[in-house]
Amino acid sequence: MIPASFDYHRASTLQEAFTFAQEYGEDAKYLAGGHSLIPMMKLRFSEPAHIIDISRIQGLKYIKEEDGILKIGALTTEADLEFSDLCHDKYPILVDVSKLIGDPSVRNKATVGGNLAHGDAANDHPAVMLALKANIVAEGPNGTHNIPVDEFFKGFFETALEQHDILIEIQIPATKAGNGGAYNKIERKVGDYATSGVAVNLTVDTSDTVVDIGIGLTNVNPVPMRVSRAEEALKGNKLTQELIEKAGKIAGEDCSPTADLRGSEDYKRSITKELTIRTINKAWERAKASL
């Protein structure tokens, strides 16, 4: 549990971070909240020679609505989300997910940006951002670029971020009447990776017809996964328990979980189905309440 030797560099601006990153190249890793990278370093699975601490860069910690978009700064902590009035009032799915990450001391340090940039399908925010159809804003030495969340996750710990890129902002279409989201996960104990997690963001009209729907899954697929077939099944249709059941069934079928200490493939498919049904219902309840 003692990491290999490394040099520590603290960047106070993005520009400074890029300069470090360009200087040290492949031997460098960005560090934000440290709750994914540091355990790997302590186990010596990861031995970067240079750590570029971006956690103190000013101006990357905010939750605000602007021009019909909810903007979350990458250094926003899980605790910031958990206790945000804006999230409580309008984006309860973000409160759901932050509350289910780690424990309070983890949430005080861990950042939303880090959770996404780590590119781990077991992390919780990827599924949520898939459901919310978020847009990821990255900045590198050559300027900023937008990455739709569907193009963001590439593989194990791999994202569309280019070598020196820093994820700076997450953009989510602002909520409107008839919109409701929810996240839930089954975990072996508090702080565990999800055995399965389901994020749903749903918009219905007054006749309960699905206007828009996003469903994302956590840790039941090698990469964070959108359940497109279930979304298609729901979109444009009037919500019924039969239809929700069908969406759940699709989620269980289309995911691709791996057996591990948490349980067998069958078990994970089964609970993914059930969790999808329950989470759609929870999102529906919230969506109706917003009408």
Partner: peptide, 28 residues
């Protein structure tokens, strides 16, 4: 409901850290 040290046939302990050796907390 939670704890068990799990070994495989090759002799690996598969849950030799608090990531997988599940000690209940106040939440549980």
């Amino acid at each position: 409901m939670y704890e068990e040290l799990i070994y495989d046939d090759e002799g690996n302990i598969l849950n030799g850290s608090f990531m997988d050796y599940l000690v209940p907390t106040a939440v549980e």
